[in-house]
């Protein structure tokens, strides 16, 4: 795509701005910030990737992955406000998932051990793990609010933290995985996923593109399961005080 072509895409931003002004949505400032940030972030990432692909230095790859995990953990951590050390726990969950995924993909030589494969696929895995972590924490917050009677009944009967919160945890893990599993069922029918679309546009054979997309869909499913289970096991105790009382959780903030 030429620079001129790229600049024409600003038309989409203008349409959004016009809708906002016309409908008095008051989103103009956010749209402007979003436009500038997305353009700068993506262009920077493009240059960074170009540099890393050229050098192929494994330390740079590791650095990028760490950065991705850090940002993802920080963002998902917002959903677990008030829980001790939640950002670290999310980071451990996401990093374990990433290690497992890459271990399998590289170990079985499913993908080549080059930054061109490792970085985009890791980015997608980590991004999905971030969404799943956020969903899990949100759902746990809801569960702790709505199942208070049940959890405290179990505590009253002398249950451990794990015994008291087990059912709520199970429901939350399940609920955090549902979007990924639903996505598996409709992929290709409702939406053509980003990776496949990108490869096709870049000139790849659609069958080859589909193969990679299948890889991603399967990897997502297992990364959702692994992240959710690891994070729930690492964090369930944090819904209680040190002396095993259930935390009073503020209701979930909107937005």
């Amino acid at each position: 795509m030429s620079i001129l072509g790229l600049s024409f895409t600003l038309l989409f931003v203008m349409i959004t701005m016009l809708v906002s002004v016309w409908q008095k949505l008051g989103l103009e400032r956010d749209i402007a910030i979003g436009t500038i940030r997305s353009a700068i972030q993506l262009l920077l990432v493009g240059y960074v990737l170009q540099f890393i692909f050229n050098t192929s230095n494994p330390w740079f790859i590791a650095l990028i992955l760490l950065l991705m995990i850090g940002v993802a953990s920080y963002h998902a951590g917002k959903r677990g406000k008030g829980l001790r050390g939640i950002v670290w726990k999310i980071a451990i969950a996401i990093a374990s998932t990433e290690l497992l995924m890459m271990g399998l993909l590289l170990g079985f030589r499913i993908i080549e051990a080059t930054p061109q494969y490792i970085i985009p696929i890791s980015g997608m895995t980590i991004g999905n793990a971030m969404v799943v972590s956020g969903l899990l924490l949100n759902q746990m917050r809801r569960e702790v609010g709505s199942s208070r009677g049940e959890i405290e009944t179990l505590l009253s009967l002398g249950a451990t933290a794990r015994q008291a919160i087990q059912d709520a945890m199970k429901r939350s893990v399940k609920s955090s995985m549902i979007p990924t599993i639903d996505g598996m069922k409709t992929v290709g029918l409702v939406q053509l996923p980003g990776m496949m679309t990108g490869m096709i546009i870049a000139g790849a054979d659609p069958i080859e593109a589909v193969r990679y997309q299948i890889l991603i869909v399967f990897a997502f499913a297992s990364s959702a399961a692994v992240t959710s289970i690891i994070l729930s096991l690492l964090s369930y105790r944090e819904w209680f005080t040190k002396d095993l009382r259930l935390l009073s959780i503020e209701p979930e903030r909107k937005g």
């Binding site: 505590l155 009253s156 002398g158 249950a159 002396d243």
Partner: peptide, 13 residues
Amino acid sequence: DPRAWRMKVCYVA
């Protein structure tokens, strides 16, 4: 230990 306590002092809501 809170568990040991609650097994001896039990609350019925």
